[in-house]
């Protein structure tokens, strides 16, 4: 199971890399979303995918799944959610102000106002 999940995470990250290298800002944001998915999936996989009950003491099972990666992923998800919403608003604002979503036209380091 771990092998399949690792391959899936790899495909997600490959797609993310491809999208992040494209021109349009929206594609880049979709790429960062996929990158976050890949990272979270990898975190879950690396914690081990052994069989066990959900980590709730009321289940009274013999074995539980590892609760720590789940807590880490929950934290990482809200963080990436916050950052993504900020990025989307920033892209919207930049589109209004700069009249383009083409990263090629946002080039250069000169301070031309």
């Amino acid at each position: 199971m771990e092998i399949i999940m690792t391959i899936v995470a790899g495909v997600l990250i490959a797609c993310a890399t491809y999208l992040i290298l494209s021109k349009s800002i929206l594609r880049i944001i979709v790429g960062t979303g996929l990158l976050a998915h890949g990272a979270h999936l990898l975190l879950l996989t690396m914690g081990g995918l052994k069989r066990g009950m959900a980590p709730l003491l009321g289940q009274e099972a013999e074995a539980y799944t590892d609760p720590l990666p789940q807590a880490l992923i929950l934290t990482a998800i809200v963080i990436s959610f916050g950052v993504t919403s900020f990025f989307l608003v920033l892209a919207y604002r930049a589109y209004q102000e700069l009249k383009t979503d083409d990263m090629d036209k946002l080039r250069g380091n000169e301070n031309h106002e």
Binding site: A36, M46, P69, S80, L90, E113
Partner: peptide, 30 residues
């Protein structure tokens, strides 16, 4: 304008490095 243009790049680089940080933590935890 320059702030909007540059902060897109700054944000993107840091999002990628944060994702790599999570991946590195995942490997270390494993």
């Amino acid at each position: 304008k320059i702030q909007l243009r540059e902060s897109i790049k700054y944000l993107l680089v840091n999002i990628i490095s944060s994702a790599l940080f999570v991946i590195a933590l995942a490997y270390l935890y494993g």
